[in-house]
Design a protein around this nucleic acid. Structure first.
Lengths: 143, 143
DNA sequence: CTACATGCAAAGAGTTTGCAGCCCA
DNA sequence: TGGGCTGCAAACTCTTTGCATGTAG
């Protein structure tokens, strides 16, 4: 836990930024949580932090690779990047919207690197979302 | 070309909607084009169509599976779905934002089905975006 | 003809910016 | 102490909605 904050501090400082109270609060609001929308995040940050600061903080975090923006269904959400959580992706039920996490296989990982390379790119990361019907919705009539 | 419009008409009518001039214009503005933001789209639609109508049209198209919304870099963009274009994904340069298309390999396709199945889901579709540095940006200093 | 679609205008979200005062290194 | 941060408020952009009118089938 403290280790996470150290990692954060390091990441900030090595890029010429400081670890402020606001940034710490935003970071903690993301730690061990499901991906959140900006609105969620603004709420879950303990001790009022202005929305504008949340936006500014997330913009910075993204630039430094501390957080990632991902598409779940319709709107985007924010979550900590792989440095602070195991690398994973999401599978979402198109009917009930339930989201579940899955780890990436090494085959998949290899394939993606391969594709990037063939296109002449150096892979930095990727975002993957699988959409499908979950176990319980497979037996339901889709509205 | 006319074939595409027929497909569109069919898709609309089989769901109780009609093929209007506005819908045709929006559709044509998407055909054989790169993914576009809503703003792009509102502009590229020939003959003024109200932004509100563009939004309503896209909402309908998405519900019918005619278009897809995808995340490219920071903002989402719209493109025609696989019915109207070959199945593909995008690789985006994190520095200059250049986007390039790549076809999916069968290994990748298989892997994704596999993962969904293991999670107990019936795969419906997926969205994948690779981020990396393109050839020319690999030799530049990142701002 | 009639129900659905569209344009217009206005309301609501979501996001960004300028600036004065505050806080971290 | 000084430059970077933050809160506040206002400006903007993006998206949705209500309503009167137009139009496809």
């Amino acid at each position: 836990m403290n280790k996470m904050l150290e990692l954060l501090s390091e990441s900030l400082k090595s890029n010429g930024h400081s670890l402020t109270k606001t940034r710490e609060k935003v970071f903690l609001a993301l730690l061990d949580r499901e991906p959140q929308t900006m609105a969620d995040l603004a709420n879950s940050v303990g001790g009022k932090v202005d929305r504008a600061s949340v936006y500014r903080t997330i913009a910075l975090f993204e630039k430094l690779g501390i957080t990632e923006r991902l598409q779940i269904g319709w709107k985007y959400k924010i979550e900590l990047s792989d440095t602070f959580a195991a690398h994973h992706h999401h599978i979402t039920c198109t009917n009930c919207n339930k989201t579940q996490v899955f780890e990436e296989t090494s085959i998949l990982e290899f394939e993606l690197k391969q594709i990037a390379q063939e296109a002449g790119y150096t892979e930095v990361g990727h975002q993957l979302e699988i959409r499908g019907l979950c176990t319980s919705c497979q037996h339901k009539v889709i509205k």
